[in-house]
Design a protein around this nucleic acid. Structure first.
Ligand SMILES: [Zn+2]
Ligand SMILES: [Zn+2]
Ligand SMILES: [Zn+2]
Ligand SMILES: [Zn+2]
Lengths: 143, 143
DNA sequence: TATAAACTTAGAGTAAACTCTAAGGTCAAG
DNA sequence: CTTGACCTTAGAGTTTACTCTAAGTTTATA
């Protein structure tokens, strides 16, 4: 049985985060000491690691809660339950990626257009470009 | 001179957002009527559009404030001032992209490993993979 | 003139995921 | 026994960028 600090160092989560996850229904201590100390079993460790992995994959805390509810009752859930969540997350991630790629492209164009030296910004092409999109409009370089 | 609602419909911002930007030092009405109504000039419109463009490129509200402070006093700033901000933002965006690409890849692998049908999740490969990373560890598929 | 649309303010609420604080109790080691 | 490290709780704070509300004023139009 591990105390919260031990679970923390074992999983790379902080004790704070573990308590936060508990509040959100993700991780529960199998036991409590008389003094209220949380004690975790090996199964708890595996669950905490499941949570950590799922979070790293991009699932929200709420998603993870849902995944855990499937995990503890697999026979009453289907693969589709799982792929639905995963599919939604992928769409989500793809959207964010394409927004960011568009920003990336614009930022690179901006940087390539400006020497970045110590001369006055009076004719800085980045400033001009950010301004120009008034007249030249979004079509020119923003998207 | 435009009222806030007119500036809003002209820029695609909402009146709420414009007031929020004002509170954050991004957009100020050149005039106020006796009743306190904000009145915006064409220069204000251009500034609001600068703000909108800069936000769309990914600059934070704080970044935009800095860019605006350069904009109103270009001769006392350098191109480097501008590229520094832009560079930082690009690094930022690149980091986010690579995190998201890693998630994307993992999610795709997960989805490819599971049929997603109506059969029981008892042996769902997604659930197994999220669990497996306990034993198999992060090296296997998460990053 | 009456009504509706638009405007004003300060301040609270939202979202997500933590992160930290205060004030105090517990436990192992020396 | 006395440290010091670790644990407890409820609840507030952080970050970013809005978004909304309430309660009241002003303006344009019919
Ligand atoms: Zn189900
Ligand atoms: Zn420049
Ligand atoms: Zn400067
Ligand atoms: Zn499956």
């Amino acid at each position: 049985m591990l105390k919260i600090g031990e679970l923390a160092s074992k999983t790379g989560l902080t004790a704070h985060t573990i308590r936060f996850y508990e509040k959100n229904g993700l991780i529960n201590a199998s036991e409590r000491s008389d003094a209220g100390y949380r004690y975790y079993t090996e199964a708890d460790v595996r669950q905490a690691e499941f949570v950590k992995t799922a979070r790293k994959v991009g699932f929200s805390v709420d998603d993870v809660a849902t995944l855990l509810s499937i995990r503890v009752d697999k026979s009453n859930h289907t693969c589709q339950d799982v792929t639905d969540i995963t599919q939604r997350k992928l769409i989500d991630v793809n959207e964010k990626i394409s927004e960011l790629l568009s920003m990336q492209q614009t930022l690179e164009i901006l940087l390539n257009s400006c020497g970045g030296g110590l001369e006055s910004a009076t004719h800085c092409s980045i400033m001009e470009a950010l301004d120009a999109s008034n007249a030249l409009n979004a079509r020119s370089f923003v998207q």
